[in-house]
């Protein structure tokens, strides 16, 4: 549910990201066929990749664990997402993995990094766009 919510937010701003000369890509951690199905269902207007090994998540320093997956804040965010109309589908990937966002300049300099504290914790879109200006 939270990933559906996040890609919907990203869909709304991909034009703003490209207007700043950047590209947007999303990485998940399910199998390739699951990624393909997700991309089709969500009609994603940006590239989707997957890393079933989750090695990229580990190197990016992203969190993983029970506490970050099922805390009080997660329930609160989940209820808010439900009110917005999002529904949880079958989990395709690691249910304990948390996400994050990097904004990387050409050549590899990190301009912005956000490590999600727990499920449903997404960075402010404005912060991402500011990093590109």
């Amino acid at each position: 549910m939270f990933c559906r919510q996040q890609v919907a937010q990203l869909r709304d701003v991909v034009g703003d990201i490209r207007a700043r000369g950047a590209e947007l890509v999303v990485v998940g951690n399910g199998r390739v066929e699951q990624a393909r199905q997700f991309a089709e269902e969500q009609a994603l207007p940006f590239a989707l990749y997957t890393d079933p090994t989750r090695e990229s998540y580990e190197r990016a320093g992203l969190r993983r664990g029970l506490a970050s997956s099922f805390g009080v804040g997660v329930v609160r965010r989940g209820l808010a997402a439900l009110r917005e109309g999002y529904r949880q589908g079958a989990v395709q990937g690691d249910p304990l993995q948390q996400g994050g966002v990097l904004v990387v300049a050409p050549g590899g300099t990190v301009l912005y990094q956000y490590v999600s504290e727990e499920a449903g914790d997404h960075p402010p879109i404005d912060a991402i766009l500011r990093a590109l200006t």
């Binding site: 549910m1 950047a22 947007l24 990485v27 989990v91 395709q92 990387v104």
Partner: peptide
């Protein structure tokens, strides 16, 4: 430049 988003999973 790249905005690289890691999602929790597909679901």
């Amino acid at each position: 430049a790249l905005v690289l988003v890691f999602v929790r999973h597909f679901g």
